[in-house]
């Protein structure tokens, strides 16, 4: 299932890594390097899925998640973060995130979670 996916991360390294992983599975990838750009991009592109970092300058990922869900209550968002705390995972689940992926990324795990979320299931957490 090919999808339009928006990758939001202030790290160019992480954006490149995710782009490579997602494009290898045939997905169409766009990028945003901060929260404001992400909201604009979401409004313009209406992607099928957003992969969203948490710790970013300007607008934090949790705030971006909340704004996205206000704009589109059906928005599918996977949090992709280095933060491995159970409490953070619980927080983003409450915020309506579909799944949680930890950095560093594993190709198989990213694609597995993305596919599950695109198919309408919960992606689970690391």
């Amino acid at each position: 299932m090919m999808a339009k996916i928006l990758v939001v991360d202030d790290s160019g390294m992480s954006r490149r890594t995710l782009r490579r992983i997602l494009e290898s599975a045939g997905h169409q990838v766009s990028e945003a390097e901060d929260g404001i750009a992400a909201l604009e991009q979401y409004f313009i592109d209406k992607p099928d899925l957003v992969l969203l970092d948490l710790t970013m300058a300007g607008m934090y990922g949790i705030d971006v998640l909340n704004r996205l869900r206000e704009m589109d209550s059906q928005a599918r968002v996977i949090i992709a973060s280095a933060d491995i705390q159970s409490s953070t995972k619980a927080l983003v689940e409450e915020g309506g995130a579909s799944a949680y992926i930890n950095k560093p990324f594993s190709i198989e795990h990213v694609l597995d979670v993305v596919n599950r979320v695109l198919q309408g299931g919960a992606g689970g957490a690391d």
């Binding site: 710790t55 280095a82 491995i84 705390q85 409490s87 950095k103």
Partner: peptide, 14 residues
């Protein structure tokens, strides 16, 4: 650095 410090402090938190 972000990944490593989060791994360390996040595990602390957990």
């Amino acid at each position: 650095g972000n990944i490593l410090l989060n791994a360390c402090l996040g595990m602390f938190g957990n």
